[in-house]
Design a protein around this nucleic acid. Structure first.
Lengths: 199, 199
DNA sequence: TTCTGGTGAATGACGGTTCATTCAACTATC
DNA sequence: GATAGTTGAATGAACCGTCATTCACCAGAA
């Protein structure tokens, strides 16, 4: 027996996909639910069969898409043993993942900030998991004696994330790309690695 | 004869100050013009004597406040000769400026992102000037032989800005501060400096 | 016939903006 | 100095367009 509610799942997916597009184009507050509906080929009301309200669309979108990114990232890291290599892989994967999900990247860039302010009740777990991927690489490196012990992982994770995030912002927003993804990833990871490697 | 029309200038200032508070608390889209008016002790309509519309309040706010930050930053850098010291000073000044202007920091954090998307016509000059302070320090360091020649200032400036920006975001949003401003500034500038110093 | 998922026009709240009106400060006239 | 006339900054109630959300209705499946 095939799942008959597959139809449902399909609409759910279509709505999310449409929302990614629309939110990326206009931002959350300038996006109309009716526009999402149109983009998803669905009636306005149908959206409310799958989501509680406009906010819920955004939150679900985060939840689901971040999970995908998170999985991909974990896989990319797992290919290496050396913490330094892991960090390089992280940088490269981060930038190329966001490059191939440019619309999602825009949303993360902009709305992630908002979400921590306006949706105070919504603690973006997935984002913290992502951030903590970095600090666990650093800790591992410290244990293995590869990274300096005096690095504060809690600070370094934010610095690294911030650097990468800013770089991808530049990518997303600017039309003229002076540097390739690979170049940028290498540069950035080399700053940090040289700064963190044990003497 | 005292300027009686000084009142006007005063209102402009009061409205901007109120807007900083209100936008920081609610974000741009969740802020009501009437709330700004109330906070500024001014009638709703008065705001439209000084600003074209709600957007204009935000843009003017950026323009004026960023100029202040920019001036302060230039002064902080000018105290040093050594590019490495300049970079440290930049990091420290950045974090402490934003710490003492927490509300402004929140707005920059969140709305700066938006502004580059929704106010496409508005090219945030001041922000680029700020960013370019970093790259000129780096170039100067390269010329003086202090920094590695193979550093790409265009990438490095974004990485450094991103790292600092993320750090200040953490400050602004989190209630529990595990690290002091000074610690964070030192850590971050040390990563980059070690990564950039000529061998 | 009943039940389900789907529809999209209708609704109503919300909030940015307007504008008719007020009034304090200033000027001209006596 | 007192009075009348003028100005324009300031006011805030009301207007009006814009959506998020609802719900009466529909079509197809069982």
């Amino acid at each position: 027996m095939k799942r008959k509610n597959k139809k449902s799942t399909d609409k759910h997916r279509r709505i999310i996909a449409a929302a990614v597009k629309v939110f990326a184009k206009n931002g959350f507050y300038n996006s109309k639910v009716s526009e999402i509906a149109r983009a998803a080929n669905v009636a306005d009301g149908t959206i409310y069969l799958y989501f509680q309200n406009k906010d819920d669309i955004l939150i679900t979108l985060f939840e689901e898409e971040m999970q995908r990114i998170l999985d991909a990232m974990r896989a990319a890291i797992a290919e290496h043993d050396d913490p330094a290599e892991k960090l390089k892989a992280f940088a490269k994967a981060h930038l190329s993942l966001l490059q191939s999900n440019a619309e999602l990247a825009e949303i993360i860039q902009v709305e992630l900030r908002q979400s921590s302010k306006f949706m105070k009740e919504y603690h973006n777990e997935k984002f913290y998991e992502y951030l903590n991927l970095i600090s666990s690489i650093i800790r591992e490196g410290q244990e293995k004696g590869v990274f300096r012990k005096d690095i504060e992982p809690g600070i370094a994770k934010r610095a690294i994330w911030g650097a990468l995030d800013e770089m991808s912002r530049y990518w997303v927003l600017s039309s003229t790309r002076k540097y390739s993804i690979a170049t940028a990833a290498d540069e950035i990871s080399s700053y940090f690695l040289r700064g963190m490697l044990a003497a």
